[in-house]
Design a protein around this nucleic acid. Structure first.
Length: 265
DNA sequence: AAGAATGTTATGTA
DNA sequence: CTACATAACATTCT
């Protein structure tokens, strides 16, 4: 489920829920026992997000690194939480809030050196104020693969996933198979700006919405699930009605409207 | 109720 | 260093 906006949203929420007071940390099924032992009763002082990686910083210096992978989630309960199901790895709670981590691929303690190594191998994250788009552009210039592949490579840009990839390339008329190094600077700048805007919107709205309500003449009210994208999981391009092509690109579905995004020669 | 899904890493090969 | 294929890992929802 998660692309970068989800992780930034979680970072913000967790800081709000827990900042300043001790928390109870547990590992209900014993899959993060070492961590829970170190963390229980500590104060969660700060949270941070780099791309799809979430960090919890505790007052005694411990850092928890979380990555939700393809289907990880964090569930939030207000008030008395339910008994944790078998799949809960890491539970953080105070008198009011409880969060349960489920299905994550990473849930581990990190020392500062390993945190540094982690952030060093990530490309700039459009949601971070310290992001340097020049680095992403330079990385693109070095790749021979298509832009579609390159955009999912977290060393190029951090936080972009399959939905934003499909959508941003559609809106900018770029075919996923265009060699990354052939993407012009102007076009790249447009893509970067769009990603930043959309992902910030994703944090606010807690979901991915790339479509423009006025452009599509959508009625007021919540945009239906499945109706929030132009090509991703669409059968026809929401802009021009052309059938969408979907194909396996390095193990992920790629989507394109080959009228809006002419294939490279 | 099998299968799909907004992801990454490690490993071996070229 | 870049690329690519394959396997492994993690759950929920239809």
């Amino acid at each position: 489920m998660p692309e970068g906006h989800t992780i930034h949203r979680l970072a913000r929420d967790h800081a709000r829920f827990f900042a300043g007071h001790p928390v109870a940390v547990s590992s209900p099924q014993g899959r993060f026992e070492a961590g829970a032992a170190v963390l229980d009763g500590a104060v969660l002082t700060a949270t941070d997000a780099y791309g799809k990686h979430l960090l919890h910083h505790y007052d005694h210096g411990a850092i928890v690194h979380l990555h939700l992978g393809l289907f990880g989630r964090v569930r939030h309960h207000r008030g008395t939480p339910p008994e944790p199901p078998d799949t809960v790895r890491y539970r953080v709670a105070n008198a009011v809030h409880t969060i349960d981590l489920i299905g994550a691929t990473a849930c581990e303690l990190l020392d500062p050196a390993r945190l540094e190594a982690l952030t060093a191998r990530l490309g700039p994250d459009p949601l971070r104020a310290d992001a340097d788009p020049d680095r992403a552009y330079a990385a693109l210039q070095r790749r021979r693969v298509g832009v579609g592949r390159a955009l999912l490579d977290q060393r190029v840009v951090a936080g972009v996933g399959n939905v934003y990839r499909a959508e941003v390339l559609l809106v900018h008329g770029v075919h996923p198979e265009l060699p990354a190094r052939e993407l012009g600077r102007t076009r790249f700048d447009g893509i970067w700006d769009t990603l930043r805007d959309w992902m910030a919107r994703g944090v606010r709205e807690r979901r991915i919405v790339t479509v423009d309500r006025d452009e599509l003449g959508l009625p007021p009210g919540r945009i239906a699930r499945g109706g929030a994208t132009y090509v991703y999981r669409q059968t026809h391009c929401r802009r021009c009605g052309t059938p969408v092509r979907r194909w396996d690109l390095a193990g992920r579905w790629a989507y394109a409207c080959e009228r809006c995004q002419p294939p490279p020669a």
